[in-house]
Write a protein that binds this DNA or RNA. Sequence first.
DNA 1: CCACACTAGTTAAATTTTTAACTAGTGCTA
DNA 2: TAGCACTAGTTAAAAATTTAACTAGTGTGG
Lengths: 162, 162
Amino acid sequence: MVVTESLDSTRAAAWRAYIEASQRLFTQMEDDLRADSDLSFADYHVLVLLSEAPGQRLRMGELAGRLVFSPSRLTYQISSMQRRGLVSKEACPDDRRGSEAVLTAAGLLTLTEAAPHHLASVRTHLMDDLDDAEVACLTRVFDRLGRRLRAARTTSSTHATR
Amino acid sequence: MVVTESLDSTRAAAWRAYIEASQRLFTQMEDDLRADSDLSFADYHVLVLLSEAPGQRLRMGELAGRLVFSPSRLTYQISSMQRRGLVSKEACPDDRRGSEAVLTAAGLLTLTEAAPHHLASVRTHLMDDLDDAEVACLTRVFDRLGRRLRAARTTSSTHATR
DNA sequence: CCACACTAGTTAAATTTTTAACTAGTGCTA
DNA sequence: TAGCACTAGTTAAAAATTTAACTAGTGTGG
């Protein structure tokens, strides 16, 4: 085994299990979402984030940041959702370079129809199998990790790629 | 908030934190790997799996299963690695439909050079920040999850898509 | 044995994502 | 207040991924 130097075997095992299971979980979620709502995971998340935003609108950059999308990927994503009538796009009043994605009525309706199915799928594939301590552990670990990575990216961003 | 019905708020928070942090972590890993070894995450994983396999070779289907890749994605992945000299492909002796991916000497060398950097990146971005209890918790949760999802996919596979 | 349903893997076309270059607007500073 | 570096977002081309159709080989029931 060439590869397990420098990471103790406990942690190596944790890493492997995490990577593989996450991969499976994400593809499972995608499949479920597509099967019962004809949305991608990205579509769904855009809808959720917009639905929660004040005025149900967000700046492109803000949305990209939260979705962990590159700017160009977000442009594509939003224009696809625009074609399907789920969002619209408006010029940003105060910054004329900017634009904002706005949730449409159809988008909101789509979300309200999709949400129960998706949440059921989150439950059956992941959450129902976790006890409270495990949930607490995941929250703690990934909250901390998310904060740290978010910070790292804005810090070293002289040449940040995405 | 339209979306948080049916999943208690503790679990909803865990889900969000997990999704976002994982997304960030995966893109960070990709970036690091590409920066210091000119490999994608997928490239790296293929190299690891082959290096550990007996004869440093695996059937396409086996490899696809472990990587959680669709068959056609794997075909593309392997032919790209073949072009770069990291793997070769051989006909399968016992099943003439099949073929196997085989690690080349160059592939092994590439892996041994890449591994320390990648493992360092796993440590600095994730593992160094976790205590032993957290590592144990992640292993337990994701091992179980992986097993369950693996089982689900082979069970319901009258029409499995990938 | 042999038709037929199934498995392994590839291929071609369409879609998505990345990469790199670019347009336009902002805002600092000299 | 003009120049300049930086930010927001888009676009075009290249690369990766999915989807669907297809080729070839396997193996089983009749």
